[in-house]
Amino acid sequence: MADQTFSQEQVDEQIANAKKEWQEKELKPLQTELDEVKGKLPKEPTDAEKALQQKENELFQKQVSVELKANGLEQFADVVNVSNEEGLTKTIEQLTKINNDMKINNSYQPTDTKGNDAYDVAKKQGDHKGMVKSIFGFKS
């Protein structure tokens, strides 16, 4: 093969053509794919959006506090951790049931109930003399 010589213009033109071909075949598809991936990424919220979200959270926590207080459950405020109204409603229902069960279990339940004494037996039988005798301690 004979030595070929190229002018600077021809070399520059060949480089420009190769670069253009590379951009069309390789670079453009990669850039398109990168743009698609960037579009799917979550966007960083602005300061205004962050402030609004914080205000919404504070408002919801106040609502939680008010709902608990309205249902007599304010002592549970430190342990209730809900993020939406549905969760709040379910939590209040469960806590109310638990609280009511605890009230029943902790209420006065006499253990030494009397059986039928002589007075009650006489009263049920309509025995007035027996009722009087039981009151004054007379034995029959």
Rank of each mutant, 00 (worst) to 15 (best):
M1F: 11
A2S: 13
Q4V: 07
T5A: 10
T5H: 09
T5W: 13
F6E: 02
S7M: 07
Q8P: 11
Q8D: 13
Q14W: 04
I15G: 01
I15R: 03
A16Y: 11
A16T: 10
A16R: 15
A18D: 06
K20I: 07
E21T: 04
K28Y: 08
K28W: 07
P29R: 00
P29Q: 05
L30R: 01
T32R: 02
T32P: 01
E36T: 07
E36L: 03
V37W: 10
K38T: 11
P42V: 14
K43G: 10
K43M: 08
T46F: 05
D47E: 15
A48S: 15
A48E: 15
Q53Y: 07
Q54Y: 05
E56V: 06
E58N: 11
L59F: 05
F60E: 03
F60Y: 09
F60H: 00
Q61W: 00
K62R: 15
V64L: 10
V64T: 14
S65P: 03
S65Y: 09
V66Q: 15
E67C: 14
L68G: 02
A70F: 08
E74G: 05
E74M: 12
Q75C: 05
Q75W: 05
F76H: 11
A77W: 04
V80P: 12
N84P: 03
N84I: 03
E86S: 06
G87R: 04
G87K: 06
L88R: 12
T96S: 15
K97N: 10
I98Q: 15
I98Y: 06
K103Q: 08
N105D: 14
N106E: 14
N106F: 05
Q109S: 14
P110Y: 06
D112Y: 02
T113D: 11
K114V: 04
G115S: 09
G115M: 05
N116G: 00
D117K: 07
A118L: 03
D120Q: 08
D120L: 11
K124M: 13
Q125E: 15
G126D: 04
D127G: 06
K129D: 08
K129A: 03
G130F: 06
K133G: 00
F136Y: 12
G137A: 12
K139S: 13
S140M: 00
